[in-house]
Amino acid sequence: MTEELRHTERISEPREDEELKEMRDLVERAANTANPLTPDIERLVKNHTKLLRRFNKIVSLSDSYQSQLRDFNLRLELMAHTDPLTGINNRGYFMELLGMEMERAKRYGRPFSVLVLDLDHFKSVNDTRGHAAGDEALRSLCQVIKGSGLRNSDFIGRLGGEEFAVAFPETDCNGAMGAAEKVRMNLEKSEILHNGSAFFITASIGVSEYRVGDTLEMVLNRADQAMYQAKASGRNRVCLSE
């Protein structure tokens, strides 16, 4: 804002450059000596002043257009990273962040863990209550995950459909299991309101910890396998990868 104010000042009062000052002196001298060219000199100085003012204005307007482009770029970047329904990271960006986290863990020999979460019987929510209710359930799930005591460094992503993932930097599988269990319990008791009626959903969660030599796919696959194990053993539970 201060920067913008400064811009405005610069437009309304063009900088008195040396040249302009010199020209004004010339006008004064011409007038004092009753020089017949005085009106012409005055006109030239007026034009020069206008040009200077115009120049400043064009520069400042161009800056504004450039800032506008920068804002659009930022918005575009955000859109390219975000799942429009839930507002959390989309798969692509989640994988990018996870890749960086893995590099860090590899270099410094630090632990990190991931959970993969899949909603139970989500298809039946869509079939019986409609897709809008399903969408509401997905949004509600994201709120529950965010409200389950994640740290600032933890990050969430929507992997696709009703499958989500959370990455826990600097966390071994025991820590991640605790966080996953908290998410599962909070979700189980969270009422989802849609069109005046309320319903509940549960999730099956798999957790895995990064191991030296892992690729991203390997860590996620293990969490995925653990999630299927949670499904197979009755849903609404958390399983740790083998």
Binding site: K57, L61, Y65, S67, Q68, D71
Partner: peptide, 15 residues
């Protein structure tokens, strides 16, 4: 949608 847009219009109007 663009907060700068109106101010820029005013800059043109001044001329």
């Amino acid at each position: 949608e663009n907060p700068r847009s109106y101010e820029m219009a005013e800059d043109f109007r001044e001329e």
